[in-house]
Structures are given as C-alpha cells and as structure tokens.
Amino acid sequence: MLTEDGRHLYVSYDEYHGLIEKLAIKIFQSDWEFDTILCLARGGMRPGDILSRVFDKPLAIMSTSSYRAGAGTEQGNLDIAHYITTPKGEIAGKVLLVDDLADSGLTMHAVIDQLRNNYKAITELRSAVIWTKSLSKFTPDYSVEYLPTNPWIHQPFEGYDSLRPEHLIKKWSV
C-alpha cells in the first residue's frame, strides 16, 4: 500500500509473492529461453529462488551490498563479490539477472559491467526486478511496477534487519 504522500510503499507477504509471480509471467510471455538465474544477494534472493523453482532453472548467487547502515535504510559504498556461487561450475550461456528493485541503478550497472568483463562464457544477459523507481539510471528488461514517486519500499521481511537473537529468546520464552 502506497502512503498518501507517495514516500512509502508497504508490501505484505501476499503482495510480495504476487508481484514475483507477475514477474514470472512477464518473463515467460517474452519467450526468452535462459539457462541460469543469477540473483543478487540479498534483495534478489527471494525473487531468484521463486523464479528458479517456477522455471526449473539452476540458481546462482552473487553477493552485493550497499544498504547496511541504519538497519538497512542508508546506502553506502557498493561492494560486489568477486565470485559467483553456482551449482553448475562456471556461470555460462543465457543468464537472467534478478534483484528486487532498480533504485538508483548503480548496482545493476556495476554488476553487469563486472559480468561482461569477467565472465566471457555468458552469451546473453537480461535483467528482472520487481520495482523500478523513476530515479533509476538503469532500465531492466523485465519489471512489474514502475514507481514515479520513488518511495521507500517496506518489504515484509525487513523487521529482521533490527531483530537480534536476544529478542527471539525473549519472544519465544515460555
């Protein structure tokens, strides 16, 4: 649900999963055949996992990080892993790159540059995200929602960003 001021978007688990399913439909209807899904951890892990199951394709993971401070609400320097975890040796062929959103677009541009420069076995690369903000300098191949007001997206699992083990102990103590 988008707030009246357009500055915050609150997403429930049901809405979140529905958006991923709509993303799967868009990808399927494009008739593009791909070999592997490469998700960007952490935001792309949940969509990547679901898409991997729906399309019955192997899931590779590349770790990236820029939102660490302020319980994940403040963007810092972008870190991109030098290695990709994949169940099939080296990542190759046609690859679908998945993340949760195109925010500024810097992460997707940097990752695509790294993939094109360091992974010559990738023959074709397309991108998929749930949300694209209007301020993004990156246009994904597949996206479900365009956000003209650039709201902060409150995803349903973000409560875990500030939850610590001692909180769980207190919560689950009988």
Score class of each variant (00 low, 15 high):
Leu115Ala: 11
His17Gly: 04
Arg53Thr: 13
Phe28His: 15
Ser134Ile: 00
Ala92Leu: 07
Ala121Tyr: 02
Ser173Phe: 09
Pro140Gly: 06
Gly76Phe: 05
Asp31Met: 07
Thr36Arg: 00
Asn150Pro: 10
Ala60Leu: 07
Lys94His: 14
Pro156Ala: 10
Asp100Gln: 05
Pro151Val: 10
Lys26Cys: 03
Ile61Arg: 04
Glu158Asp: 10
Leu147His: 05
Ser30Leu: 04
Ser63Gln: 15
Arg116Glu: 14
His8Ala: 11
Asp161Met: 06
Glu74Ala: 14
Thr36Ala: 04
His82Cys: 07
Thr139Pro: 00
Leu40Ile: 15
Ala60Ser: 14
His167Gln: 12
Trp32Leu: 02
Trp131Glu: 02
Gly44Arg: 03
Asn117Gly: 02
Arg42His: 10
Gly70Met: 06
Ser30Met: 03
Leu9Pro: 05
Ala69Asp: 12
Thr123Glu: 15
Ala69Trp: 05
Gly76Lys: 10
Trp152Lys: 09
Gly48Ser: 03
Gly6Ala: 07
Leu106Asn: 14
Gln114Tyr: 12
Ile169Leu: 12
Ser134Asn: 15
Ile80Asp: 08
Val174Ala: 14
Met45Ile: 15
Leu2Tyr: 05
Leu147Met: 09
Pro148Val: 11
Pro148Gln: 10
Tyr67Thr: 07
Lys22Pro: 01
Tyr67Met: 08
Gln155Cys: 05
Leu78Met: 09
Phe157Cys: 02
Arg68Phe: 07
Ile169His: 09
Ile112Lys: 14
Pro87Val: 04
Leu168Gly: 00
Asn150Gly: 08
Ser52Arg: 03
Asn117Trp: 01
Ala81Glu: 07
Trp32Ala: 03
Thr107Trp: 01
Asn150Met: 06
His154Met: 08
Ile20Lys: 06
Arg68Asp: 11
Pro165Cys: 01
Tyr13Asn: 11
Val95Tyr: 07
Ile169Pro: 00
Phe55Thr: 08
Gly48Met: 04
Gly6Pro: 05
Leu23Asn: 01
Arg53Trp: 04
Arg53Ser: 12
His8Arg: 13
Tyr83Ile: 05
Ile122Pro: 05
Phe28Ile: 04
Pro156Gly: 07
Leu96Trp: 07
Tyr16Phe: 15
Ala110Lys: 11
Met1Trp: 07
Arg126Asp: 07
Lys94Gln: 12
Glu90Asn: 13
Ala81Ser: 15
Tyr83Lys: 12
Lys133Cys: 02
Trp32Glu: 05
His154Asn: 13
Asp35Lys: 10
Ala41Thr: 13
Asp35Thr: 09
Leu101Phe: 08
Gly105Trp: 01
Glu33Cys: 10
Tyr142Leu: 01
Leu23Ile: 06
Thr64Leu: 06
Ile153Lys: 06
Ala41Asn: 12
Ala110Ser: 15
Val111Tyr: 06
Ile153His: 03
Lys170Glu: 15
Ile130Met: 14
Phe34Cys: 03
Phe138Gln: 00
Asp141Ser: 05
Ser143Lys: 04
Ile91Ala: 01
Tyr160Val: 02
Asn77Asp: 15
Leu163Met: 14
Trp131Thr: 09
Thr132Val: 13
Ala24Ser: 13
Gly18Leu: 03
Glu90Met: 09
Leu125Gln: 08
Glu4Phe: 05
Leu168Asp: 01
Ala41Leu: 12
